[in-house]
């Protein structure tokens, strides 16, 4: 389980996070939604270990993040940033193989290549494997990084027990993606969770969150103001009070999850 409890964080004199708790269990896909400035990205950085909270604990499997060695943690938990700074002309296959670096010396190179293969298939990038990263579009680059972070925590074959579950953290992963690839990416995250791993993703589109997430957190002004399955969280009242927008919430005709349209 990946969890943070009673997190408080002040940045530049502003209270960004005010005592919030979030958990991700193995096998579940959790989405965090909320208006701009609600503290989603800060929460994300706290959960990934990039930011230390002023108060509260972040832990993986009941062990605080700071008690993990960086490398052990990297083998269990991968983080997809909103955008990457990479500007050197690597081949796509080599960017994906960068994800295997925490396993260097522990897995065989041939296994690393097979894992790269598997994640390229999963992310529909096999045809770009030999392309230079610098010649790709923004959306293609984002998918290459998804493949890279998947490769970081991907396992070949063997089933996994709960205490070996991996965790995938995604920060607004659907930005820059076309409609088909937004859904393809979320389907990938969904499959990764169903295989027994935990996924936490920040999302802006509540309809995508409703379709793919098992559980949602709604953040507003550094607090959790709603938590639960999409049906209970995504209500007309929540949208109007948290996002300040009048909406109509309906049932999706085929999968029965809630769908929101502006009223």
């Amino acid at each position: 389980m990946l969890a943070c409890r009673d997190i408080e964080l002040t940045l530049g004199g502003n209270d960004i996070l005010r005592g919030l708790s979030v958990t991700v269990e193995p096998g579940e896909c959790v989405a965090v939604i909320g208006p701009n400035g609600a503290g989603k990205s800060t929460l994300f950085h706290v959960l990934s270990g990039a930011l230390k909270p002023d108060l509260g604990d972040v832990g993986l499997d009941d062990r605080r993040l700071q008690n993990w060695s960086k490398r052990e943690l990297a083998c269990r938990r991968a983080v997809l940033p909103q955008a990457s700074l990479l500007s050197f002309p690597f081949r796509v296959i080599d960017v994906v193989l960068l994800g295997r670096s925490p396993h260097a010396g522990r897995t065989k190179r041939s296994d690393d290549v097979r894992i790269a293969e598997a994640v390229l298939l999963e992310t529909d990038l096999v045809h770009l494997a030999d392309r230079l990263y610098t010649t790709l579009s923004g959306g293609e680059r984002q998918r290459v990084h998804l493949a890279r972070v998947l490769a970081q925590i991907w396992r070949l074959g063997q089933s996994l027990s709960d205490d070996a579950a991996s965790y995938l953290l995604l920060d607004e992963p659907t930005n820059n993606l076309d409609l088909a690839h937004q859904h393809a990416l979320m389907a990938t995250a969904r499959r990764f969770a169903t295989a027994g791993n935990g996924v936490l993703t920040i999302l802006h589109d509540p309809n995508i969150a409703a379709t793919y997430a098992d559980r949602l957190y709604v953040l507003d002004q550094g607090r959790v103001v709603g938590e639960g399955v999409p049906e209970t969280v995504l209500t007309k009242e929540m949208f109007e009070s948290t996002f300040g927008i009048p909406v109509t919430v309906m049932r999706h005709p085929t999968h029965d999850r809630p769908v929101m349209v502006p009223a």
């Binding site: 990297a74 938990r77 991968a78 983080v79 990457s84 700074l85 925490p102």
Partner: peptide, 8 residues
């Protein structure tokens, strides 16, 4: 940050 998340 990415290098840190990769365990370095």
């Amino acid at each position: 940050t990415e290098a840190m998340h990769l365990g370095f």
